[in-house]
């Protein structure tokens, strides 16, 4: 019922919508088509939505994925984002919010690259959302990972604080926060104090060419 309503509303909004009714159909469709974005319910018949997402990312497919689910616990949300979802929306939600999130996810995903990124002894694999330092895996939270990804994709160029905010949260500007500084602090703690250079009054960049 929700699927029908969402598909109808999206069509009204000008989107062309394909629906997959179970996990197997979703996997097949994701292999056959290059979609602009994916709305993924976690409670799919015959399989977990998370597995579909994991399989998608394992193919180095960077199609933006927005999880739409009734699982509202914070740990569910973190699991979804860790598995490579771009955003996570809990039912029930106003349709406006779905559209806004969808647009934000699309904006953020533009120009995204899938190949493995390297900076000195730090290696970031976007498909597996895995980060290693000198070969040893490093556990990063969702936001720490996104901050690092944005910095590594810019390859040493300065990334403005606003741009980082947008890459990490994809917000609409309603929320002002200094939490990027927290993630930078954590990244320095986990990956080395010298890794990220603060450009005062503007933003951050990765240190040197290393």
């Amino acid at each position: 019922m929700l699927g029908d309503a969402v598909a109808a509303a999206l069509a009204l909004d000008g989107w062309q919508v394909d629906r997959a009714n179970d996990a197997a159909a979703a996997r097949g469709a994701l292999v056959d088509h290059a979609y602009t974005a994916v709305l993924l319910d976690l409670g799919l018949p015959q399989g977990s939505g998370l597995d579909v997402l994991t399989a998608l990312r394992a193919r180095y497919d960077t199609t933006p994925v927005l999880i739409v689910t009734a699982r509202d616990q914070l740990s569910d949300r973190i699991r979804g984002l860790d598995a490579g979802a771009d955003d996570y929306l809990v039912k029930p939600f106003p349709f406006d919010e779905l559209c806004a999130r969808l647009r934000a996810v699309l904006r953020r995903s533009q120009g995204r690259v899938a190949p493995i990124l390297r900076h000195g002894e730090i290696v970031l694999d976007p498909a597996r959302r895995a980060v290693t330092r000198a070969g040893a895996p490093v556990r990063l939270s969702v936001h720490e990972y996104r901050t690092l990804l944005a910095l590594m994709e810019s390859r040493g160029r300065v990334v403005g604080r606003d741009h980082l905010e947008d890459r990490v949260y994809g917000g609409s500007g309603t929320i002002e926060s200094n939490t990027i500084a927290v993630y930078v602090h954590q990244l320095r703690r986990k990956l080395g104090e010298q890794l990220i250079v603060t450009v005062h009054g503007y933003g951050y960049r990765l240190a040197g060419d290393a």
């Binding site: 969702v142 936001h143 609409s172 927290v182």
Partner: peptide, 12 residues
């Protein structure tokens, strides 16, 4: 981290 994750839900 928890605050950042939760507050984003109230953005819209």
């Amino acid at each position: 981290e928890i605050v950042a994750l939760v507050v984003r839900e109230f953005e819209a």
